[in-house]
Design a binder for these strands. Sequence first.
DNA 1: TGTACATCAGTGAACGCGCGTTCACTGATGTAC
DNA 2: TGTACATCAGTGAACGCGCGTTCACTGATGTAC
Lengths: 225, 225
Amino acid sequence: MKMADTAVTAGNGQPVPRPGLRERKKQRTRDTLLRSALELFTEQGYEATTVDDIADAAEVSQRTFFRYFASKEEAAFFVSRLAESHFVDAVRRRPPGEAPLDALRQSLVESWDTIGEAIEQLVPLELHMRFYRVIESTPALLAAHLRRATELEERIARVIADREHLDVDADPRPRVVVAVFGAVIRVTERIWSAGDDVSLAALRQLNTAYLDQVEPALTGSWRTD
Amino acid sequence: MKMADTAVTAGNGQPVPRPGLRERKKQRTRDTLLRSALELFTEQGYEATTVDDIADAAEVSQRTFFRYFASKEEAAFFVSRLAESHFVDAVRRRPPGEAPLDALRQSLVESWDTIGEAIEQLVPLELHMRFYRVIESTPALLAAHLRRATELEERIARVIADREHLDVDADPRPRVVVAVFGAVIRVTERIWSAGDDVSLAALRQLNTAYLDQVEPALTGSWRTD
DNA sequence: TGTACATCAGTGAACGCGCGTTCACTGATGTAC
DNA sequence: TGTACATCAGTGAACGCGCGTTCACTGATGTAC
């Protein structure tokens, strides 16, 4: 009877929730808040944007902002959170035979393909990419981003340990591969955010190019050209 | 005439400053503030300690605290900053022939030897070690620590690039080795801080053990035992 | 189709808190003669 | 050795600011009959 539904909840591929007028209004309010936040952050900077600014832009009260996001930081990383769970899912789906480092690489390539669409459900992808650079250039956000990355690495290390039937606390290798992989990703994020090409393609290209350099960078002394 | 001097300024091996009654009083005030801060941070936690608490404990005004430290965070990382410059110096001193990854490893081993003493000039080493664990368990501090670590890595990548006569922006390898090295160090910091043995020796031991696992962790698929 | 009641998103205003800043001032240390 | 002045570490009190919280309330959506 009330099945007519356009804005299906994004989610990370879960059961697909219920509709309901009230529910959809909530979604809209949250999306508006999120977009307003990211727009203001990219336009005037994260620090220079107060929670009141965001609420004003979204035409709700500050009180309402805090109903949807526990903190200003949570709003800033809402989209990243979505992207992260896509990546974790991709790692889980890798065939067990694959070498761990390859599994991580493939998961990254794979998940980028689907993440874009998922993000678009929430905010324009282009806005997210621009905000991604704001993260890198804002000390408080960069710090939070790195801490979150560390937490993500711990989750992934456990996934890797599981697929290799290892105890993550007994064998150093799962945490080490994941840390190495993550470190290289972060180097490329930094370089990408400092460059001119804001596109997702540019980031992907840097990612793969730098991952290819892991082995040459670690082996012996470097040939001087 | 006024050369009789006990508390020679710590410094990172620079010219060795002047004495002076006023100057020494300043040193004492700063050291007292620093120790008070670290003691309170380890006892009641970083967030639960206000700048006023620290000033009270050091028996100066809050205003005075801010004359010595630009922020609460700066006080928290004052000792780390010292340790970092020791490490950078050690990297600079490595013989040019050495493979980059080995140079980093050796620098770490070497600098730990001298860092301890340098820290003792400022605060008890044991206090610093205990505080180091507080960093890992306090989200805001861990975040700041990781951001600082990233900045340090950039500095070191440049040192490595220099010794290999490479352009850090043209060749990915300097940043990649340093990022990999740093990532492994951070994994061990985390594990160390979660364990029972607070000693410097325990941290060093973890460091080397995990660095040994980089190659096995990255190569192919892992043998299932 | 209509009425009565329940739920709950959103309001608005006020507040607590701690960081970091500003101001005009005091008094000890240092210096010149 | 003493006097006059300069420097500058430290004071104390007040303030601005933004985050996040609390409170009693309103009105739209949802549901039961």
